[in-house]
Design a protein around this nucleic acid. Structure first.
Lengths: 113, 113
DNA sequence: CAAATATACATAAGATTCTAATGCATTTGG
DNA sequence: CCAAATGCATTAGAATCTTATGTATATTTG
């Protein structure tokens, strides 16, 4: 990871929810690869963080799952529930506000449009 | 705190360094009040997080300290060392890159300059 | 003027959330 | 054929917070 890993803390759940909102259904390994690809290797989700988080989302009924077999190998797909979609909006609003606050507080110049 | 507290994790050291870069010398309580004021109460630094972090910065020689007495009450001022100034730049670059990555990944509309 | 609030430092227990390590099994590519 | 990739999962330990507690002085307010 390029960043100090502690910066990522608290953002993982939101990242997963956002990806599921955009992609309807994804499995764990696919999520790690998608994040790696989208961030050009800058964010690498570790399995020790990913799976417990996915299980927590399931426990909280924010996602539903369906297991498929690709040959003999299992693949567990995750999809947002209705509650999950609401939670995603909530989390995205929260992180947006947080980022705006940090940008102001730290006087960050962005390269973005 | 308005945000989920876990979002703040990893940002505290950078916030403190940035304030010290802008203000030459500050004491602990002053830092908490300045952050509260600048973020309109959205970020409240707790003492349990603040003082250990200040002590860690001192241990790492990123800040120097001087103690003053206001009447009988002690006040411990912190100032950036040369190494601390370099570290501040480093940390600000890191968090800037991180925020840019998150903005892209989560498709956030930011208010960045 | 007494009591509440604010100022100012500090530490400790416990919660949360991650990384690193480990484990198991299947599939693909050179 | 065998190393790397795919795919799931758990656990020990690290890092970084919150909440609670402790101590003391100064100021504001009813």
């Amino acid at each position: 990871m390029t960043y100090s890993p502690e910066l990522l803390k608290g953002t993982l759940k939101t990242i997963i929810l956002k990806l599921l909102a955009d992609n309807k259904k994804m499995y764990g390994y696919e999520i790690t690869q998608k994040v790696k690809e989208l961030t050009r290797d800058k964010i690498q989700i570790t399995e020790g963080a990913l799976y417990p988080t996915l299980h927590a989302l399931e426990t909280d009924r924010l996602v539903t799952t369906q297991t498929e077999y690709i040959g003999k190998r299992v693949r567990k797909y995750y999809s947002l529930s209705v509650a999950g979609k609401a939670k995603t909006k909530e989390k995205l609003n929260e992180i947006t506000e947080f980022i705006n606050t940090m940008v102001f507080l730290l006087d960050i110049k962005s390269k973005m449009a």
